[in-house]
Amino acid sequence: MVARAQDRSYRSLSGLERTASTSRVLNLAAVASQNAGDPEYESAPFFKATSLNGAVIIKHRLRADEQYIFDQSKRISTKVIIPFERTDLGLGGRSLFVGQRGWQDLLYQLRGSQEDEARDIALLEALDELPSLDPFLLREHLKRRDFKIANCYFAISAADLERMQRFVSGEISKLVDLAYGGGKGGSPNANISKLVSLLLSGQDDARLEPLRLTLGLEGENFREGIFSWKGFLYYKWVLNSLWPELRQVIAELSEIKVVGPRDYEMLNQVKDVGARVNQAILGQVRKVRASLQVYDDAFGELTQAGNPMAFRNFLLKSPEMFITLGERTGMVSHIASFWRYRFPKGRPLRVELDELFDILQDFHQGLGEDDDHKAKTPGEAPEGELLDPASSEAIGRAVV
């Protein structure tokens, strides 16, 4: 249950009312508000049950006191919040976790209809398979599961998709020589464009057969490996775009000013949590980069050394690695997107102390700092990254 009260859960739900989806949040209530009357939205809804189609779906990092409702331990779960009133999330709502004991019985009570129940359950289970709710991966994953859903639910712009395609083209150009014979039967650029389109289409296609033969994979192993490969390429592209945004967050945390009453004990707690958040951000990005380096090394073996076995072995392991990579990228992506939502560019960087404490606490818990705190030495930036020299202490100084 999400009740209206003066706590972080209420403020978080209420705050979603004006924001769109992020890597951690799929805000179907906002999609409903923005696309009411759109024929495609009306003909291909996300969920068939009206109540679910106005829900807020969250990738939630489970706390210790929430583990007991699951039969097996989990780090991340998919939380479904059905608002009491979708036009006013501040009124709260009812919630459940996908996979908790008895969750389908709870869902039956909340849906309000038996029509297409099996389809909505299967869709929720498909969402739970993903490490995050990044719109590109969400769209690709649900295509593979044969769900017909309107494009308005996947808020990736045409410009972003074009940049993603250019990035992937640059990444896989050397592979074309191996799998498609370079310029044989067409120009190299045409072959690269063809392979990129096939990889990003989300559909099985016989034209991928040369790639399958090059990698020596069969059936489901090939399909799962290709999807996870797309995930690695997507997260590599995301990280390249995300770093400038994270650097801005770190810089703005050093500039933010507290307004209103000050409690000096809470002020010290904010400094402590802020410093931990900073280190946890850097630690998570290091781990994302380490995972991407595993991919780069395996791909290099394929394209530079002509050794397909290394990349084949990577693809066989990649579905499991992809989940962890997605969780970690989603953690830092959420921080960048939420910070910019709360503090738009050009607006004064001012906040009350208790709200800043809540924001940093949310970041701290979402980053999993307690699990992943043993990163490199404090203040050490990821290799190759040009952070401000004092960035490791920036958050700790935020409110002085």
Rank of each mutant, 00 (worst) to 15 (best):
E117D: 13
A118F: 09
W103V: 00
T78A: 01
Q104K: 03
S95H: 12
V80N: 01
A118N: 08
D88E: 08
Y108T: 14
F84D: 13
G90W: 07
E85L: 04
R101Y: 11
L89I: 10
I81G: 04
V98N: 03
S73N: 12
Q109C: 11
K74Q: 08
Q114Y: 10
S113C: 12
R94V: 15
P83S: 05
S95G: 13
R86Y: 07
Q114T: 15
W103L: 01
S77M: 04
L91A: 10
S113T: 15
Q100V: 03
Q72P: 07
E85V: 06
I76M: 09
D105C: 02
V80H: 02
F97M: 08
F84S: 11
L91S: 09
I76F: 04
W103F: 01
R94P: 12
G90I: 08
R86V: 04
G93P: 08
R119M: 06
D88I: 07
T87C: 10
A122E: 09
L110P: 10
I81Y: 06
L106Y: 13
D116A: 11
P83F: 03
K74A: 04
V80W: 02
W103P: 00
Q109F: 12
P83G: 05
I76V: 13
S113Y: 09
I76H: 01
Q72D: 12
I76S: 04
P83W: 02
V98P: 06
G99R: 03
I82W: 06
Q114G: 09
I82G: 00
L89Q: 05
D120T: 01
P83Q: 06
F84E: 13
Q109W: 10
S95P: 15
G99W: 02
I76G: 03
I82Y: 06
D116E: 11
D116Y: 10
F84G: 09
Y108S: 14
I82A: 04
S73L: 13
L107C: 07
T78S: 01
T78P: 00
A122I: 00
L107V: 05
D120Q: 04
F84M: 14
G112Y: 15
